Amino acid sequence: MRRRSLLIAVPAGLATLAACGDDKSDSSKASDSASPSASTSASAAPPPKIVDGPLPAITAGAKFGEKPTVAKGSGDPSKQLAVKTVIAGGGTTVAENDYVQAHYLGQVWATAKVFDNSYDRKAPLIIQLAQNSIIDGWRYALTGKKTGSRVEFSVPPTWGYGTEGNSQAGIKGTDTLVFVVDLQETFNAKSSAKGTNVAQNDADLPKVGTNTDGKAPSIDIPKADAPTKLVANYILEGDGDAVAATDSLLVQYKGVVWDTGKEFDSTYGRGQLASFSLEQVVKGWAQGLTGKKVGSRVLISIPPKLGYGDSPPSGSGIEKDSTLVFSVDILAKM
């Protein structure tokens, strides 16, 4: 059983934290129409055969990152997964279970009805290519592709929304779907912030490693009293968008106790990224990360009143009234 992050697995009713009753992340929230997210009714199917076509033509918006216009499907679509790399990128290869950041458009083969697209929202989708997070057609079509690529593919119901379809998106159980996806970025357990080093000159604050190899950075606690106020400093400053208090983030992080330097939680140790809303976590995280830029590594020192106070999670190894220290890599906004 996968270990839950201590950031959201918290005692119910604790004033500084939101109670969270399940282990679902925000990674499955595709949009208001939830189009590529996994169907709750479609049963698991064997892997499809990947074929070259047929696929309808892209008639406008042919450049990477432009909203495409796609022709109506001609004739019968493949009963397998038809996949074409329209633009071959030269970036990182996408693996199954990676999180991908992508713009996309989806329409119905037979009618060319567009049921969802991220281009009009001006916000790319970030979602995990994992079973039960996204329809299987996406997992199979995009695994092995490189970032910077535009991929067009058709998804029959077997690897889409099954025989029940998706009524919210106007998709029938017999509809084959056509997607055009522009793969911008991919993130996995080896991802790190890539910002510019910021001087760590305060000898009374922890010093955080600046490695960007996907391994956990060191956190060296000084022989000094813990700060009584929140500290949130850049270690690596990225150049992405500023984080808002209501944002959901995809992060790598490591947490240690100030008094002992002992690690109590880490995405690096689990080998899995974390995604959550800043409205779900301890106040020190929410306040410390708000305003920081995507792509950054941030040192956060959280006094007890903004952390777990006198009610730390059972079995966490955190004593009452502990100051907590985190290194947080802000990989993306969900």
Rank of each mutant, 00 (worst) to 15 (best):
K292L: 08
A38Q: 02
V208H: 11
D239M: 12
D26M: 09
S39Q: 08
G317N: 06
D259K: 15
L177S: 06
A9P: 00
K145E: 13
E263R: 08
G160K: 05
E319T: 10
L205H: 12
A286K: 15
K29V: 10
L273D: 00
A102I: 03
A62F: 08
A12G: 03
D182W: 02
Q272T: 10
G65M: 01
V257G: 01
P206C: 12
E164Y: 02
G288V: 05
L14S: 01
A226M: 05
P77S: 05
K145P: 07
S118C: 02
L278I: 02
A42V: 12
D23V: 07
D175Y: 03
S316F: 05
G89I: 00
P156R: 07
K293V: 06
D120E: 12
Y308D: 05
D202R: 11
V257W: 00
F115C: 07
A244Q: 14
E263T: 15
K320Q: 10
V10E: 00
F187G: 04
S5D: 11
V86D: 09
T212V: 13
A57P: 02
T228L: 05
K122A: 09
V70T: 14
I135D: 14
N188E: 10
D52M: 03
D204S: 15
S167N: 06
A34R: 07
L230E: 04
K29H: 08
S296K: 09
I126C: 11
G291I: 13
L306M: 13
E263V: 15
I134C: 04
G288M: 10
F153Q: 03
Y140M: 05
